[in-house]
Amino acid sequence: MKKYQVVGIGNAMVDVLARAEDAFLAEAGVEKGIMQLIDMDRAVDLYSRVGPAKEVSGGSAANTIAGIAHLGGRTAYVGKVKDDQLGAIFAHDLRAQGAGYETAMAPKSEEAETGRCIVLVTPDGERSMNTYLGVTEFLSADDIDEDQMAEAEWIYLEGYRFDGPDSHAAFAKAVAACKGAGGRVSLTLSDPFCIERHRDAFRDMIRDHVDLLFCNRAEMRSMYQTEDFDDALAQAASEVAIVACTDSENGVHVLAEGQRWHVPAVPTQIVDATGAGDLFAGAFLWGLTNGHDLQTCAMMGNVAASEVISHIGARPEAHLKALFKGQGLL
């Protein structure tokens, strides 16, 4: 048995979650519903203008790994923070969830700071993310422990990391170490605009290395440059062993071994959509590494996503295993 069921690699961020009206987004020049990269000056200005906020360790893959740890999975995370206050908060919080976290911190002398994502949640539950990457942008191959990757049944790669200048080399090192030891690779596409910036790199990674692809409808169509959702799914399924594509309130589509399943969403009142895809992936991977069939994994993912969107923040507040049992999944 390998030491880890899943090791995630992503942008280590502290999430600043605040409610905002659509008028505020327009006034502040924030494009609704997407992730925008911002610099430090913009981060400071925007933070000064938002109302009361909740600050928690975050980042897409970190949320996924925290979800797996919440479920009792053997898991670890790789992502760069600085030796500063936010960096210490991030490291402590992730370890407190039960996940391993040993990535070397950037020194105090580093000019860039620990990254943060200002998430503005509108009354419809949509989130608009404004991301200052800080030192997490500079995660490099030197930060990848090959022995750790070899001890993973799966590695989970965050698409947002493709924006980092050294991230491609870091991913390549991780993939080689994991696959060389018989492990498998999962990737989340993260964001349509991220795909636009790095489509060729994504396509190469998907075709050559990915065993499980996570995405949503918009990302799927962006990846394969078609408005025909079914065609995009078919293209993905021709390249990847397992495809799990979420479709908001319409549930999720899973494709594998020439078959396709549609698993309905779990109805819930949307308070904050932040982390829905992250927790879906975490629960799906936990189910997969614990021997459940793909339809059950997808249902677990939907249950986890429905829980996390029912409150502010991207970490579960209810016990997910209890919810799984309530749905007859355990």
Results as ranks from 00 to 15, higher is better:
K3H: 13
K3P: 10
Y4L: 09
Q5W: 11
Q5Y: 11
V6Y: 10
V6A: 13
I9E: 01
L25P: 05
L25D: 11
G33T: 07
D39Q: 09
R42N: 13
G51N: 12
G51Y: 09
E55H: 09
G58W: 02
G59M: 08
A62V: 09
I68W: 03
Y77S: 04
V78Q: 09
V81P: 07
D83H: 06
D84A: 07
A91R: 12
A91K: 07
H92W: 07
R95P: 04
Q97V: 11
A99R: 02
K108Y: 06
K108P: 09
E110Y: 05
E110C: 13
E111Y: 10
E113M: 15
T114P: 06
R116Q: 12
C117T: 12
S128L: 10
M129I: 14
Y132E: 05
G134S: 06
G134E: 01
V135T: 15
T136S: 14
T136M: 09
E137D: 13
D142Y: 03
D143P: 11
Q148P: 02
Q148G: 01
A152C: 10
W154Y: 15
W154M: 07
W154R: 08
G159W: 02
Y160N: 04
F162A: 04
D163P: 01
A172E: 12
V175R: 00
A176S: 14
A177N: 06
D191A: 06
E196T: 05
H198M: 04
R199A: 03
D204I: 08
D208M: 11
A218V: 10
M220A: 10
R221T: 13
S222N: 06
S222F: 00
Y224P: 00
Y224K: 02
D247F: 01
H253T: 15
V266K: 02
Q269N: 13
V271G: 02
V271R: 01
V271C: 04
T274V: 11
G275F: 05
A276M: 11
A276K: 00
D278N: 14
L279D: 08
A283G: 12
A283S: 13
T289H: 03
T289L: 03
N290M: 02
H292Q: 07
Q295F: 00
Q295K: 13
T296H: 03
C297S: 12
M300Y: 02
N302V: 02
S306E: 09
V308T: 08
V308F: 04
S310V: 04
S310I: 07
H311N: 14
I312T: 14
R315T: 10
F324L: 08
Q327H: 15
L330V: 15
